[in-house]
Design a protein around this nucleic acid. Sequence first.
RNA 1: GUGAGCGUAGCUCAGUCGGUAGAGCACAGGAUUGUGGUUCCUGUGGUCGCGGGUUCGAUCCCCGUCGCUCACCCCA
Length: 418
Amino acid sequence: MQAVRGLKDVLPDESAKWQRLEAVCRDVFGRYGFGEIRTPIFEVTGLFARGIGEATDIVEKEMYTFVDRNGQSLSLRPEGTAGVIRAYIQNQLQREALTRLCYAGPMFRHERPQAGRQRQFHQIGAEVLGSASPSVDVELITLMADLFRELEVTGLTLELNSIGCPDCRPAYGEALVAFLDGVLDALCENCQRRRHGNPLRVLDCKVPACGEATRLAPVITGCLCAACADHYRAVKDGLAAAGVAYRENPRMVRGLDYYGRTAFEWTTTALGAQNTVAAGGRYDRLTEQLGGQPRPGIGFALGVERVLLLMRDVVAPAPDLFVVMLGDAAEARMLPILRAARQAGVRVDRAFDGGGLKAQLKRANKSGARWCAIVGEEELARGVCQIKDMAGHSQREVALEHMVDAVRAALSAPRTEG
RNA sequence: GUGAGCGUAGCUCAGUCGGUAGAGCACAGGAUUGUGGUUCCUGUGGUCGCGGGUUCGAUCCCCGUCGCUCACCCCA
């Protein structure tokens, strides 16, 4: 038996890193006033079709869709926003002027696994609903910058764009298609096909010839309506004021249909073909599309596995104390003390399968514990234990009833040099 | 979904021009009786991914399959 293709186990050695990422996110989200929302891992299929877009690859061929026992089509969530918005509407959260929600959890897409790409992957994301102010965009992007700063993830580029609104995008689309028709022969096969289905994608094609051919193509930011242009200007000014560096990328395209106006992407060159670490954008029409009252919104998601690849390793904490017990009588005497130590917050480990002093000390050494307590027959008879500094070799005798306090005191003392 | 490369001990890998395999690390035990880490010795551990074919004989060649990796595609 083995795990399903594209799904991975996270083992204890790695989960320390996961926990650090999650802890930093929790902390930063809290400082920015976000509350966590936990939505189900699957939803009615139609929710994603309506939210993400019928014609997107995600909905067309990447969802894990199944029919449940009463004939309803359900899908494992391929992204987080649709479910969050559904919950926002269903629970009447739009009564509040502004709602800030964050979430974390697994997402599912049936893609070919690759570096930084799995079939079950994890996202941590956030949504702000109820305000169309560009200041919200600025604050959300600033939050992300702080997140990466605290995670010590460097080398990222923030790419920024405005992809317009239903008022200005159609005109741009026409202008672009007209241009593409003029250079059609110079485009790769893929792009000739894309010219019809998804002309925007032609602009970020990786084939050099296509880049060359579309060098002079019209860009969206040149065709924005006044309102969108003002919004974009305000976002850029705000980011500059907040001290967040960005690079304008008028060719950036978002994959999901619901985005409009502000779009952004944090990219890296360290992850092979999967260069997007986090991305998001504004979606002012999504609540309506999903049957709720109109409320502007903006959100982002970061790919947990991708961020993890960029973080330095985190080592799981070793035990504070390893207790070596020789014989059943010693163990019986020590059990309440072990428990008391743990209740007092000390990380305690021990050997379970006996062995002599040497064997147990080997385990103590391997556990990485800083302190070791030895209780053999002699100590037991006198009601004491030897407390040994595993790095410094020194050892001293302590009465059993004072052991927990002695260990706690030792733990807060400066480390001796080995 | 398409293409390429790769699957040998828990891990990293070597190897056999076809005669059923080895190293390092890890793990276990030992080097005078109750003191770990370094060193030395010994030991456990592999249906050579799985299935089929060719062959006297396959881990090695061929086909299929599963998995991994990378790229395309797509995206976080």
